[in-house]
Design a protein around this nucleic acid. Sequence first.
DNA 1: GTTGAAAAAACAGAGGA
DNA 2: TCCTCTGTTTTTTCAAC
Lengths: 150, 150
Amino acid sequence: MDRVDSKIVSLLYENARIPISEMSRNIAMSQPAVTERLRKLEEQGVITAYRAKVDPYKLGLHTMAFVLFKTNTCKDFVAFSESSPEIVDLYRISGEYNFLIKVLSETTESMTRFLEKCNVFGFSTTLIVLSTDFEDRSLLDRDITNYPFP
Amino acid sequence: MDRVDSKIVSLLYENARIPISEMSRNIAMSQPAVTERLRKLEEQGVITAYRAKVDPYKLGLHTMAFVLFKTNTCKDFVAFSESSPEIVDLYRISGEYNFLIKVLSETTESMTRFLEKCNVFGFSTTLIVLSTDFEDRSLLDRDITNYPFP
DNA sequence: GTTGAAAAAACAGAGGA
DNA sequence: TCCTCTGTTTTTTCAAC
């Protein structure tokens, strides 16, 4: 992982559908060399996926919430979460609560119905998202002086 | 937005670098027709971006946290957040706290230093992420009977 | 890491249900 | 309007170095 790799990842973060030929022009390196570097970045697990980012509002998902859980039935809760498409993210956290989930639902009413289903797992606190200032910022636009690069 | 569009978005969620020709074979529609539908999905804002998903651990970012804030200086806090690369997500929420941020930092020590900088904005509660069970689940693998499709 | 040729994909226009 | 067909340009793949 050097500056060229960092540039490749950065370009693919900005636009995952960029042609390799365009990247190769951008960083002044031959196209097969970029292809091989990209293959290694995927193999090493630096790049784990390429995703289209979808606007939830355009799919009718108008309500977002974060929910904190305090539960003893962890295994059951994880199984429930995996089978609930409303739950987009699932984190284990330290502190008073032991789980944090991000939920997307159609309306506040459907969100309420979903939260009622969750009550069996223990105490919870719901944080309704009023607006998103930004989301999913680049991990590469940082001061890279402390990066784990050789 | 019909079933074909839904399939296109779904395929691009699974792999944003899939060739249009492969999608066209998958859904039995000509390549220019898929190209045109994709153009419209982007134009309508259903698809907002294509992103390479990067493993933060592989970049040396070993510590993730969610931080809740109770602040009066909203404008200043947003400006601070925008200029802080550690902050990946920024949400305004309802309830006792008015902001929720997701933070990625190198170590617990660098996270601590960052959190100290945040203290000027008001009261905060930090939730350290111990592990991520899943993140960024598909919005399209739902029961689409209630979808806002014609 | 580079070059160069063959294969594949994307693009742009014409025309049909 | 939405699609298919077709020729041209661009990109990817794969060989050899």
